[in-house]
Computed example of a mutant assay.
Amino acid sequence: MSKQPECPLWQLTLTLPFEQVENITDIFEEHALTVSMEEAVSDGSLWRLDILFSEEPPSALLDQLPSEHSFEFAPLVQKDWVSESQRMLPPVDAGRFYIHGSHDAPHPARSRYNLLIDAGAAFGTGLHETTYGCLVALDNLRKSRDFRNPLDLGCGSGVLALAIAKAWKTPVIASDIDVAAVNVTRANAERNRLAPLVTAVHAAGLNSRILNSRAPYDLIVANILAWPLVKMAPGICDALSSNGVLVLSGLLGSQEVMVRSAYLQQGLRLKRRYSIGSWTALVLGR
């Protein structure tokens, strides 16, 4: 999840049978900023797709949509959410993790893990339910597990990579498909004096020489979106060590069954679930 461009965003919304979802996402995947999906009816037969573009896509791309499906396509009205967020963003308390902006003081307790993250060009201040769920999951894992080769896949601002480095004092690989997010992660690592422990790389999923060379990982955190998590399940599980732990988020509660099924097919089992509002974070292992 990444930087909002200055030009207007465009959103395509359509509802279609589940078996057609993959074909549609394949058409737009290379052109879209994000693709999200949720159940349109309770039996799972129809799903709603919201596809976000940084600019108006060519009409030839829209012409590939099946003629039997109606869709909505329009620009999104934007506002200066960065400055607004910095004014209104409160600190986030998640177990021992304390995420605060430069406008707030760090937590005074020495036992707390203070992380300075300002709202900015990349997703992940800890305030959103998906990031908060991952932080709580990491705090609970800290009490019982030791990790030495972790990966933050889809790092955004790098908050989860920084949290791992802070809690386990171990090197972390942080990757994102967006170059802006990689740069923000590096800057945040510098600001938090964690740069020696955090290596931020630009990569599409696990398609990176650096990521492949460091596998298998004993901890993978992926706070992305439900559909990419489903598509990436085989690759993520191949990169996870035999006793590794996987933390997934970015999925709505209504999408949990779909995501869990994809990882069940790869031999992973649910260890713990965190429900925060409409969102869910999952902890899985073999």
Rank of each mutant, 00 (worst) to 15 (best):
K3E: 12
Y113L: 12
L127T: 08
D118K: 11
L33G: 09
L225S: 08
A222C: 12
D63F: 07
G124H: 06
E19M: 06
N149F: 09
G133S: 04
R214T: 10
N114M: 03
Q265F: 05
P66N: 03
S157P: 12
G101K: 01
D178L: 03
K79P: 02
I24Y: 12
H69A: 07
P75S: 14
V247L: 01
S45K: 14
D63V: 07
G120W: 03
I177W: 13
L162V: 02
G120R: 06
M232L: 15
I220Y: 01
R112F: 04
H107C: 13
S208H: 12
R145N: 10
L65T: 04
N188W: 04
A233G: 03
F73L: 08
T280L: 08
A161G: 15
S42Q: 13
D80S: 04
A233L: 09
H202D: 03
A163Y: 04
R112I: 04
W81C: 08
S157H: 06
Y263D: 01
G235C: 11
I220P: 01
S144G: 08
S36M: 07
H100F: 10
R148F: 11
G126D: 07
A204K: 15
L248S: 02
W10H: 11
V230Q: 07
L282C: 10
R87M: 08
G158V: 02
D104A: 10
H128R: 00
M88V: 12
I99T: 03
A262R: 14
V77R: 12
G205M: 09
P58D: 15
A94V: 07
T199D: 10
S70A: 11
P91W: 04
A161R: 13
F18Y: 08
Q11H: 06
N223Y: 00
A165L: 03
P58M: 06
E129V: 00
D104N: 15
I99W: 01
L197S: 08
A239I: 12
